[in-house]
Design a binder for these strands. Sequence first.
DNA 1: TTGTACGCGTTATCAC
DNA 2: GTGATAACGCGTACAA
Lengths: 342, 342
Amino acid sequence: MTTIKQVASFAGVSVATVSRVINETGYVHEDTRRKVEAAVKQLNYKPNEVARSLYKKKSRLIGLLLPDITNPYFPLLARGVEDRMQENDFRIIFGNSDEDRQKELDYMDTFVQNNVVGVISSTNDPDADCYAKLKIPVVFLDRTSSDSLSVYADGAHGGCLAAQEMVARGSKQITVMQGPAHIRPAQDRFRGAVEELQQSGIAYHVVETTSFSFKEAESWAKELFSKYPDTDGVIASNDIVATAVMHEAHRLGKKIPDDVQIIGFDDIPLSSLLFPPLSTIRQPAYEMGWEAAGLLIQLIEHSQVTKSSVPNLHSKVLTYSSIQLPVKFIERDTTRRVDNDG
Amino acid sequence: MTTIKQVASFAGVSVATVSRVINETGYVHEDTRRKVEAAVKQLNYKPNEVARSLYKKKSRLIGLLLPDITNPYFPLLARGVEDRMQENDFRIIFGNSDEDRQKELDYMDTFVQNNVVGVISSTNDPDADCYAKLKIPVVFLDRTSSDSLSVYADGAHGGCLAAQEMVARGSKQITVMQGPAHIRPAQDRFRGAVEELQQSGIAYHVVETTSFSFKEAESWAKELFSKYPDTDGVIASNDIVATAVMHEAHRLGKKIPDDVQIIGFDDIPLSSLLFPPLSTIRQPAYEMGWEAAGLLIQLIEHSQVTKSSVPNLHSKVLTYSSIQLPVKFIERDTTRRVDNDG
DNA sequence: TTGTACGCGTTATCAC
DNA sequence: GTGATAACGCGTACAA
């Protein structure tokens, strides 16, 4: 690897001068600049990011922590983050937390040990110590915290929407699957749905679930139809769970959507490929990742930032706020057309 | 962030001593060790990886380059890599290449600029200059190169298997979808299938495809059934394409598997969730990632490595070789039971 | 306009 | 056993 020193001697100047042309800082004679640039090109010199990072105490790296990239919801988020970071010349140190506290801590440690300039995390506990102690900006993705900046979808409204659409399409005996208790967004959408149902005075049951794994979802689906056989509408906690419900309905010979309507949540790529294609509440996952990255970049670039909760009106300071993205009902074929209302 | 210097003065020793106890190198009196350890704990000292990396010219980072994490085949690979790396205290700088040469180069550059100690890449051109020039070990994942170490699945055999199973289940008019020309594994499985078909003397047609995107796959599926309406068996280039074929067959009112059998490739999580669940050739993606990471770690740890192609029998040297993992036919419901052969 | 010299936090090589 | 100290590659005062 060529160093700045080699470039310097090759160009017959000092390292300081090379540094100046590289970073476009300070004066440098046109001729010297050309010599240096020639040397850089010829030696194919690329500055050593590690040395830079050590000196400046900041790198071009950001940390990205997601629960599990294997869960089809997260790759979209990751891609949104990556694309925007890439465009802005930031690179990503990536890790899966498995919602495991220890792994989360380990990753946060190595993030700071590697001088990352910011982190994006999808954690269940945004108020955890490891984030509070951080001296670099953090953006929570798909999760919310009152104290920190977040990018998330409007889960409550999503749940509400699901309930409305289902009721509008004639379901009278609705069962709502309640997602894992420790996952905030799952609870938000659950509450949204339940509140809407209560207001409309529609009968509903609740089935509790404790994970988003398909295997387990299958057994909750069985439980659902055995406990509440009259169910004619299911609001699932996400698309994976909805898929399990579809399978079970299928197995029981129930017609979808005639006997039972199903609405999922997320709109993962899978959803449109099912038979019948799944109606669902779409979270704009890619955009969420994209926005989170954008927000973090802003935070990084204007380091002294005031959070919107405490706007400082006396000094010219940029204020940033959390971003809530809208969700949307995606009508496909596990719900009846509104015309056909029963 | 606490530095080694602060730990040193806190413990009343020199930085050298602290370094010794941290790295367990050289002698250090039991009492001193305890003092230092206490200081480390109290100050919550974590060595600065960047400084380490600068001095040693090697980090605990590896580069992982995948075409597109949004393609459901890749998260499994990524997770396999991540899990094994995590266990061995390596972290990952991750990027999507989109099969784009420039992005690939950019990522490789930043990998070396950040002193990564190894890279795992799923590239279409393992013989590219940027890999040859690398002074650190590389493992190609899901792709092969004669000159370099790879971890991949036996695509040719997979294609052959698909053809065998399809023929054994009575399809007489088989159409094979040929995957993108620039993607080696796709061509391998295609060739495997075609060779097997030729040997068995079975009639077959070929439909060319140029990507793995579902949108485009839909039009090829249409092309398939309009050009070759008698097709009673489809060997798809992967599960996404197979799904598109299922959709089209569905639309045309063809019964699966009675009128037409379909076999996919990969066994992505989606496949088992379709209706009917998709029969496919399973690539052990997670294991592939896991193995690639393992191989790379070996390479990193015994830096002077002889590739298996040139075994050096005269000196005690470890030799490594590429790893080919077996594929497997996963019988689900888009193929008929063998008993029911037509 | 340019060069010298120091420091960023570590590790390793010496002396002591 | 332990402690100075010179690197690692870069950026920036400061001097020239």
